[in-house]
Structures are given as structure tokens and as C-alpha cells.
Design a protein around this nucleic acid. Structure first.
Length: 581
DNA sequence: GCCGTTTTCGGCCCGACTGTTTTCAGTCG
């Protein structure tokens, strides 16, 4: 018997999504499938642990009724959802990969399975190469060729691009497209615009006097590997890196509606359309329309700008980062949208490295760079001694660094440089520096860099113990995940947040684009638990200081206000927090 | 499977494209 586990919201949501996917392959009622997906989304975005809710609390969740509540309880109490177990026996799970091939949905995946016994990508490729797909009802030569090409893309391009990688593709692409004659306006919409931590593809929207030149500019763009389709309204290409780009030319009167539509999220759009329907209106990418007596769209009441559409639906305009159907529409209706963090609110960066440990920039370079960014304060936080490979600092080396900092400060008064250290949390929860020295630091950051595979209970206890140390100020990269490479260590984040709030330790939003840790959803939970947050770059070089923009985006997605973020505070207030005064 | 000031049944967001058909299902965003 394995010990009882504590299921996080993400884990529960993942299983419900899988249930929906498998159900779909059996040809189940689409609305029933959607019900599972809706419940999964609700649970993933919920700010308290669903596993701890009493039955009536579960039922109060939007989209969770009797059966879904039972499924959650089954999972939490017995470690499995009988219906899911049953489906996994019945349906080959490899079909889920088959369904990911462009042009193959649940119906066709099921047809391939029934007719040809296809149970995964390898089967699909074999059947395609043998020419047996083209003979199937509803399939032809073109479908077969498209599927064969799609298999490669699924294999080659598993997963999504990190936001920073997408940005690297976007900047030169936008520059090239904007040069096309006749372009009036251009926006990159989609999850990129919403600032999601990873991006699946790019939706580019253009208003142009003449659509053809900008379409041509995309087709001829040097980074294009394949033109998938091109017409008067839309052109689709795949860039060399595998990123798909859809370019749409939109007329001026509908630009706002189209921008809204293609920015998403899908769930946000669904809620907006429902709201439109409640008012006898219809919302589409072409605008917000009154309905005529025949039920068909009539007069356009809004569409030129996003703000116009929101206001016509009696909503405050909603910032792009919030458009995830996490309560933003209710808040916009009530006039209670938060005043979100902006880059200009930040007065300093409290986590960065120098050549004293594994940084590439000297103290002088990092300080000058922070000053140039307009910061009022900063903290130098090199590694502690446990990380030998980084040249981590022991007490003796720390003393020498302070001498250097003091000498430096005597000649530079433009910015306050705080004495910090990123102190390793040892396996047993003790800290990698003596109390006497910890007490002399202005900022004590603690973090985990070893023993990632402790049991969730031990990992949680280890971190909670560290947070209880009276000198600790910030918990850095709380989950330890590295985007597109490894998941975070297993732990009970809600317990960690509760401890952090109780001990007045801020949780970090590490803005390094490979981490973004905490991510938006767990950060929302931390804020709900009463935690303060520090948005830091963890820069190991001057250029890394500019990663702050990813941190700001992620913080905004978590509904963070300047008040939540300790490095927006004036120095006096920050010092009081650090001193736990 | 969920939900309700059109409430316990009958809806559930909308539109376009593609490839396959000969009037449309499936997929996609």
C-alpha cells in the first residue's frame, strides 16, 4: 500500500482533462466532455486546495456537480477515479498523441483506431507510408500527406515555446511585417499577448490599406520554413524553429473585436459571448451585433476597439494578462479590477549574483546597471558555501565581500546596495550559514538546490523549517521547476505559503525566463494565503536584469498589485519588513 | 455532466476552412 498522497489542484485537473480526452475518443456526448474540461479548468485555477474542501465546498465550484465532486473525492481518498481507470483499459493512450497531429481530432483518431488498429504515432506513420489512410472513408490523398507531415511536427516540436523564445521570434518578424506597404496597425495577439509563460503559436493581426503586400511580406520572410496556406484574409506559415504564425488582415471597424477574439483566452471569450447573449447581442471576431427579429446579426454596436466592446457589455476594459476566466469579468462588471503591478512600480531587484560566486558581472557592473534602470535599491545575493561549484561564500569570504561593498558604497551614493546572500536550505531544513552571520545580513534569501527527490512530506517539512528561522526574508524559486526541462520538486505549496505568511517571509516570483517560479496560478494562491511577493531577476549578468519584464507579466497574470510586491515599497518600509520590525 | 429570474428539461459560444463530398462532417482557433 502506498501512503496516502495529498493531491494538488494541478494533478486533479490533469486527470480530469485526461478523462475528457479519453471520453472524447469513445464518441461520448461533446457537452459531457466539455463538462469535464470546464471542471478541470476551474480546479486548476482555484486558489485553495480543492482536495481539502468538504463536499459542499466542492459542489460550490463552478462546473462541479454531483459526479465531478465524486470523481475528485475518489481520487483524493482512494488514489484513482474508477471511470478513468476503466477508460485507460478501454482506449489505447497512444491515441492521445494521434489526436495531437494537425488535422486529426477525436473522431478521426477513433476512426483510425477502429478501422486500422492505429494505437499510436508509430502505427499511424506505418499505415500512412503504406498508403492505407487514403482509402478510409472521409480520408483522401491530401489528408494522408498532411497527417504524415504532421507526425513529424508532433515529434519534433513537442510542447510549447518559452515566452522568451517566442519573443526572440516575434521581434524581427514584427519589424519585417511593419515595413510592408499599407500596414496601418499590427498586433501579436494570442497567449503571447497575454504573457503566458509558454506560447504555442503566434496570431498576428493587421489593419492594412491593401492586404496583399503584408501577406507577401510574411510568405517571403527569411525565417519561414513552410507556407501552409495563403488567401486574401489569412496566411499561415511555419518558421524554421517550428513556430506556427497565422497572419490575419482585419478591417478597421472590426479590429478591436478581432484583437479581443484572437487574444483570448478561449475561456474568457466564451464568458464574454455568454454575457453578450444575455443582453440579446452576439459577439464574434467581426464585432458586437444586435440581433434582428430573425435572430440573425443586425446592427454592429461595437468592434473598432477592445475597450468599446467591453464597455458595450457593461464592463471595464480588462487588462490582457487577466483574460483567463479567473473572475476578471465579474470584477470588471463590479468595477473592482485590481490596479496591477507595472514595471515602473519596481524600486529595486533583490536577487542577483556577481563574480563573487557564479555571476558574470562584477559588483561595480551590476550596481551601475541597476542604477541605470532607475532603481533606488538592490541586493547583492551571491550563493552560500554549499554550492561549491558556484564559488559560494562562507563567512570569511562574505566578510571580504562586505568590505568591498563598503568601499564601493563610499564612492557611489546613487543607489542603496543591501547586503544579501542566497543561502542554501540543507536537506534537514537548516541553513548554510551561522545564525550570527545571518543576523548581520540585510536580506536573507533561502532556496533549495539539492535533494530534489525527497518525499513531498519531507520536502515540505524541510522548507517550512527554513521559513521558521527568524532571519529569513525571501523564499526563492519556490518550486524549483525549469520550464520545458524539469518539473518542480514535489511539495505541499499551500503549507509552504501558510508558513511564509505566518513568518513574514516573502515568496519570490523569479523572473528568469527559464524559471518563472512561482508561476501565475501558484502565485495567486500565495497571495490569497496572505503572502508578500518579491519579483526578482536572479540575474547572473547585466543582461539578466532585463528579465524583470517577464516577472512583471507573470505577476500581473496573478492579479498582483504594487502593494503585494515588497520591492515596490519605499526603502524604509522594505527595511522594516526585512527586519521583521 | 452541468445548470436554472426563459429552472428540473433542454439547452450548452461562434464562425471558417478543408477535404471530402454532392450537401457536409470534422477540425481548428
Amino acid at each position: 500500500m502506498s501512503p496516502p498522497r495529498r493531491y494538488g489542484n494541478d494533478e486533479i485537473a490533469l486527470r480530469l482533462e485526461r478523462l475528457a480526452d479519453l471520453l472524447e475518443l469513445t464518441g461520448a456526448n461533446p457537452f459531457r466532455v466539455r463538462a469535464y474540461r470546464t471542471a478541470a479548468e476551474t480546479i486548476a485555477a482555484h486558489d485553495v486546495r480543492v482536495a481539502d474542501l468538504p463536499p459542499e465546498g466542492l459542489l460550490a465550484l463552478k462546473g462541479v456537480g454531483k459526479d465531478l465532486a465524486q470523481a475528485v473525492r475518489d481520487l483524493v481518498e482512494h488514489g484513482e477515479i474508477p471511470q478513468l481507470t476503466e477508460l485507460e483499459r478501454e482506449v489505447p493512450v497512444g491515441l492521445l498523441d494521434v489526436k495531437r497531429v494537425p488535422g486529426v481530432g477525436p473522431k478521426r483518431a477513433a476512426a483510425l483506431w477502429q478501422a486500422l488498429g492505429v494505437t499510436g504515432l508509430d502505427d499511424l506513420e506505418r499505415e500512412g507510408r503504406a498508403g492505407r489512410l487514403a482509402g478510409l472513408a472521409g480520408f483522401g490523398e491530401k489528408s494522408q500527406a498532411k497527417i504524415l507531415a504532421g507526425i513529424e511536427r508532433v515529434r519534433a516540436h513537442q510542447g510549447r515555446l518559452r515566452l522568451v523564445d517566442a519573443e526572440a521570434a516575434v521581434v524581427p518578424l514584427v519589424a519585417a511585417l511593419e515595413e510592408a506597404p499599407g500596414v496601418v496597425r499590427l498586433d501579436v495577439a494570442g497567449s503571447y499577448r497575454r504573457g503566458r509563460e509558454t506560447v504555442g503559436d503566434l496570431d498576428v493581426l493587421v489593419e492594412a490599406n491593401d492586404p496583399e503586400p503584408v501577406m507577401a511580406a510574411l510568405r517571403d520572410y527569411h525565417g519561414v520554413a513552410e507556407v501552409q496556406g495563403t488567401g486574401p484574409a489569412k496566411t499561415s506559415v511555419v518558421l524554421a524553429g517550428g513556430l506556427q504564425v497565422d497572419l490575419r488582415v482585419v478591417e478597421r471597424e472590426a479590429y478591436g473585436a478581432a484583437l479581443l477574439y484572437f487574444t483570448g483566452s478561449k475561456a474568457h471569450n466564451v464568458e464574454l459571448r455568454s454575457r453578450a447573449a444575455e443582453r440579446g447581442l452576439r459577439l464574434s471576431e467581426y464585432g458586437l451585433f444586435e440581433l434582428g427579429d430573425d435572430g440573425e446579426p443586425g446592427r454592429r454596436v461595437a468592434g473598432a476597439t477592445e475597450g468599446e466592446v467591453y464597455r458595450a457589455l457593461d464592463l471595464e476594459p480588462i487588462p490582457v494578462e487577466l483574460r483567463e476566466a479567473r473572475g476578471e469579468i465579474e470584477a470588471a462588471a463590479a468595477g473592482t479590477l485590481p490596479r496591477l503591478l507595472t514595471h515602473e512600480d519596481l524600486r529595486g531587484d533583490l536577487h542577483l549574483h556577481t563574480t563573487w560566486s557564479d555571476g558574470l558581472g562584477s559588483v561595480a557592473e551590476m550596481v551601475a546597471a541597476c542604477e541605470a534602470r532607475g532603481y533606488a535599491y538592490m541586493a547583492i545575493t551571491d550563493h552560500s558555501q554549499a554550492l561549491r561549484m558556484t564559488g559560494g561564500l562562507d563567512a570569511e569570504k562574505l566578510a571580504r565581500q562586505w568590505e568591498a561593498l563598503d568601499a564601493f558604497a563610499a564612492e557611489h551614493d546613487g543607489i542603496t546596495v543591501l547586503r544579501g546572500l542566497e543561502v542554501d536550505i540543507r536537506k534537514d531544513g537548516t541553513l548554510d550559514l551561522d545564525d550570527e552571520w545571518l543576523a548581520r545580513l540585510d536580506v536573507v534569501i533561502v532556496s533549495v538546490h539539492s535533494f530534489f527527490d525527497l518525499s513531498p512530506v519531507a520536502q515540505t517539512a524541510r522548507i517550512v523549517a527554513a521559513l521558521g528561522h527568524p532571519e529569513v526574508n525571501v523564499l526563492a524559486h519556490p518550486t524549483g521547476r525549469v520550464l520545458a526541462r524539469r518539473d518542480g520538486y514535489e511539495l505541499d505549496l499551500d503549507e509552504v505559503f501558510a508558513a511564509a505568511a505566518a513568518h513574514r517571509v516573502a515568496v519570490e516570483l523569479n523572473a528568469a525566463p527559464s524559471r518563472l517560479d512561482l508561476g501565475d496560478v501558484p502565485l495567486m494562491r500565495a497571495l490569497a494565503a496572505g503572502c508578500q511577493v518579491a519579483v526578482n531577476t536572479d540575474a547572473h549578468a547585466v543582461a539578466g536584469l532585463d528579465d524583470m519584464r517577464f516577472g512583471v507579466l507573470t505577476a500581473r497574470r496573478a492579479w498582483a498589485t504594487p502593494e503585494h510586491v515588497i520591492n515596490t515599497w519605499p526603502l524604509d518600509r522594505l527595511k522594516a519588513f526585512l527586519a521583521k520590525a
